[in-house]
């Protein structure tokens, strides 16, 4: 992570004295997928707009690919692709014409333009309908067209604001696959989202926003340890007598909880799966399933805001 592509230091945005974003600092490394999470109005979009130089920075500083988005907005915007939340296109133009316009704004030569557009439309599966007016497109198709614009642009960073909002599960999976594709191509991705379990599956690191501040930052596993009190949750499914007592004896196990017939859940300080398996077998039980749960972002998120809300109330 020695090369940082986005470096935000103390970013602050005031709207009429109200702090929409308050002293936010984070970095995004090359080839990393970084997620901005948080409830509505937490300041995710505002942070993104400041990084793009599309809104003034009230305090703090940002470097994107080594450039200052305030002083050198063109240098930043040349290498950064942006997919706004609820992206819009010129409805009366075809998808291809919409991309042509953007390509002209970017400044591609004519030959380069057509090749890039065709390639990008292929990648997002819109090649067949590229001649149709965007007005006839579904929400998912528009979102993919927005992604095609980024693919066409040959960017180093893709900034996606709520890329999966309003998409059905299938379309969401497809879009997330395309985002992984961006990462494979060496593009760094900054995305904001509400769909936590989906975000979890693509993000290398996340920042949890609340009231304009970053409350938590790190990989999902790190956050899990921080918020859920650490430890591993091991799910055991086995037939046999008195297994719960045996498992409780395994070193490292803190608690045993029955979650159904022949099913228990262990909370442990370490990954106790090998020892648990041995304990079940030693007690004459028949082991059917043994799995360790990753901490879920959903659980982290809910727990964190629950705790925080409680603290507010206290």
């Amino acid at each position: 992570m020695n090369d940082v592509v986005i470096d935000a230091q103390g970013l602050t945005k005031l709207y009429n004295g109200a702090r929409a974003v308050d002293d936010v600092s984070f970095t995004v490394g090359r080839g990393e997928i970084f997620g901005l999470l948080g409830p509505n109005g937490a300041g995710k979009t505002t942070t993104i707009l400041m990084l793009l130089g599309l809104t003034e920075i009230s305090a703090g500083a940002a470097r994107v690919l080594g450039h200052d988005p305030v002083r050198e907005p063109l240098a930043v915007k040349r290498r950064v692709g942006y997919l706004p939340d609820s992206v819009g296109f010129y409805d009366y133009l075809s998808a291809r014409d919409n991309l042509r316009y953007t390509a002209r704004l970017i400044g591609f030569s004519e030959a380069e333009r057509e090749a890039r557009i065709a390639d990008a439309l292929n990648k997002v599966d819109l090649a067949e309908v590229a001649g149709k007016a965007v007005g006839t497109y579904s929400r998912g198709m528009r979102q993919r067209l927005g992604l095609a614009e980024i693919l066409m642009k040959n960017v180093a960073i893709a900034i996606l604001d709520e890329p999966t909002s309003g998409l059905d599960p299938q379309a969401t999976l497809e879009l997330l696959d395309m985002i992984r594709g961006l990462k494979r191509d060496g593009v760094s991705v900054l995305l904001s989202s509400h769909l936590l379990d989906r975000v979890q599956s693509v993000c290398d690191r996340v920042a949890l926003f609340q009231d304009g501040r970053i409350a938590l930052i790190g990989s999902v596993a790190e956050l899990g340890r921080q918020v859920l009190g650490g430890g591993f949750a091991v799910e055991v499914e086995a037939e046999g007598q008195g297994l719960a007592e045996c498992l409780a004896q395994v070193p490292g196990v803190r608690s045993v909880e029955s979650t159904g017939p022949d099913r228990v859940r262990l909370l442990a300080d370490r990954d106790v799966r090998p020892d648990a398996a041995a304990a079940v077998v030693a007690a004459g039980g028949r082991l059917r399933r043994l799995s360790v749960e990753d901490p879920s972002l959903e659980a982290i998120y809910t727990r964190y805001f629950h705790d925080h809300g409680a603290r507010h109330a206290a």
């Binding site: 707009l49 793009l52 599309l54 915007k77 692709g81 997919l83 706004p84 992206v87 296109f89 704004l105």
Partner: peptide, 14 residues
């Protein structure tokens, strides 16, 4: 109202 502005202004133009 078409929501094209932020997309267009994120291209390298003033």
């Amino acid at each position: 109202s078409r929501r094209t502005l932020s997309r267009i202004l994120s291209q390298p133009i003033y």
